[in-house]
Amino acid sequence: MTRKQTRLTIILVSLALVAAAAGLILYAIRDTIVFFFTPSEVTEKHIAPGTRIRLGGLVEKGSLLKTNGTEVSFTVTDGSGIMKVRYNGQLPDLFREGQGVVAEGAQGTDGVFVADTVLAKHDENYMPKDVADKLKEKGVWQEGKGAGP
């Protein structure tokens, strides 16, 4: 084989592999990404029940309910909209009423959001950026104090 042929082989093999990978990436990006919404956006944008999303906002004070088993429920609010969330599992250490939260899952046909993952902020001074940004848009956020009432 000459240098040219070797190079051509390498280039063709690389191109084939890269093309296959690119196809895979495009397919995966379309199918697996999860959008982030606050409760009022879910209503505004008519997100169909069953669509997997990340729901973010503040945990409404006094809304945390522990049932008989391991299931908990709480309400997420962004100031203008609210949505009830049901979750079967352990809440993260930093989950608190009145604090930011992100729940991943889908809305059921009864309007209750069923979460399979609940994330809370990582430390005392930190609010999930997505939540903070959205709350700023809604005007619920007060700089320096964190979230308002």
Partner: peptide, 12 residues
Amino acid sequence: KISVGAPYFNLT
């Protein structure tokens, strides 16, 4: 705002 999680990476 979106999140790209484990499903994407497992698939690619």
